[in-house]
Nucleic acid binder design. Structure first.
Lengths: 176, 176, 176, 176
DNA sequence: AATGAATGAGGATTCATTCAT
DNA sequence: CATGAATGAATCCTCATTCAT
């Protein structure tokens, strides 16, 4: 129970950030607000990566586009993994901080839009469900890799994971 | 920060369990040990479900076996979802409590063994990686469903999720 | 701003009382509740003195009874003057702690009842108002004496104050 | 504990006053000094009312003069009752702020002087004590009325209080 | 063995005060 | 002079843990 954000008392956070608690509370009305702000900033960063990738891929066929999206997901998770770990492990998903899942909601909506634009290439019919499955799978694979196999996210070892994830999603989306 | 296990003070836990904190500390040397024990018990339950499913499926071909395994995963996650949620959200994965991932390790090993037994039906060659991909995907889909769409886990609505997960894994494992 | 109860931090109170703050919070849910409890106890003590005096005097004529009541008021204020001082100076009369004035309300009611029982001895007609005037005057004289002239409350010096207060009230209540 | 001046942080006071705390501290060396200044200003206002009334009444006999003095006391207490309330409730009478009672001291001195000038009309001999009794009683009656019965201080309802207070004091001062 | 009162370190938050701009 | 961001001591309160009964 004494790790991550729990281990992060406001006083410690302030000290680490090189400011006094007083100053911290000048900018954030409560610890919750502070955590929220950090998490939102992180999510904004991630969403930027995802959005850029989807824009870049918009006109590309699913067969090649997915590869790029998977790469973007890996890049996103590789961005400040320590923070990502702490946030994903310690941020309550119930209570006032649950407001963080909007991130996933937007990503889901964007992906579904992409799939709808490429509906004729796909096997699936329920694109909402399909987007959910793809999002969740890619997210889980890259996320788990970040947490337990940081090695696969840098250097050449990064390829196998990307390959498998792409394989997985394409096998699911495309008609056999 | 004030939810789940954080909100569960030892005194509250003891009261809820109908024993005195004194007694609690007679059995568990610390709060961490207590949480650990609860988590391990929960994981043992889950592993029993998974083990049984894999045993049942051992001789079945992948094409039909996966379906059963997915069903087992859903059943496992549907077992005490409240506890599952709390544990997955609040249990630190770093620090002394990280000892929980052995669970995943065993499940991973069992699945890999199954895949190896059915190697000739499969496309993939790196079965270790393949097991990781399958485990992670199924886990994520059922887990996310438990957390955010408890509805899809009961009643007929349960089928679509199982269908999609099966699709996903088979499309990945089998040669096209 | 740094005196009396303000100067009394919960930790200091606990230390002074020879218990740990933990223990304090086992009995009182908040600082407010603690202050409230102390104040109520004090008021109960005071009311006992007042009640006893009024009972004792019930059958006595106003001319002699008032003298006894004044003495009781002095006795009441002389009971733990330090606490009385702190409470009267620091207890907010607005907010949740305002609940303390019921004390005065009861004293007022008792006095009015006494006056009504002796209506024929009195000049005044509005006995409610008369009770208010007597209560307030006696209270103020003894209270102020406690705060600024603790000397007049002990020893022979105590008499002049009692004499004057009695004089004041009798001159007001009795027909000239 | 969170009311009145306690709830008035220096920053809040400064904001309300439309200046920066910096400026506040240019004029007042500490919060205490600031509160002191406000209280002194208020007391000066009150003393002006009292002084004027005593001057006006100097030549008048006690029998009619007291009535005017009581009216002045009521007027004084009715002047900014909100501020009066806060000051009387929150200003410590011990410690560095105790300097406020000089106000009462002056009023007491003035009243005693008046009584001495009219010594032959009076019953009492210890005029110092008599002044104390009158001051305290009138103050208490008007003060309590301000705090708990603001209604009696405006409109025709104001008369009963003034009548009773006058009665009380005259009955005490004059020979029966 | 069971109890639960007692402990006190630690955490979130406020606010009087300072000082660089 | 005026400003207001920065400071950090001090406050109220929680909770894991101990120990006398």
């Amino acid at each position: 129970m004494r790790d991550g954000f729990d281990r992060a008392s406001t006083n410690r956070i302030a000290a680490q950030a090189g400011v006094s608690i007083g100053s911290l509370y000048q900018y954030f009305p409560s610890k919750e607000a502070l955590v929220m702000a950090v998490a939102e900033r992180h999510n904004r960063d991630l969403m930027n990566i995802v959005r850029r990738a989807l824009a870049e891929v918009a006109a590309a066929p699913v067969r090649t586009g997915v590869r790029t999206l998977v790469a973007a997901a890996i890049t996103a998770h590789a961005h400040d993994p320590a923070l990502h770990r702490v946030l994903s492990e310690q941020t309550p998903r119930t209570g006032p901080l649950a407001g963080l899942e909007p991130f996933n909601r937007e990503a889901h909506a964007l992906l579904r839009a992409y799939l709808e634009d490429h509906r004729d290439e796909l096997r699936a019919t329920d694109l909402d469900l399909a987007a959910f499955v793809c999002m969740t799978s890619i997210e889980a694979l890259t996320h788990t890799a970040v947490l337990y196999r940081p090695d696969v996210l840098e250097g050449p070892a990064r390829e196998p994971l990307a390959d498998e994830a792409t394989q997985l999603v394409l096998g699911y989306l495309l008609p056999s």
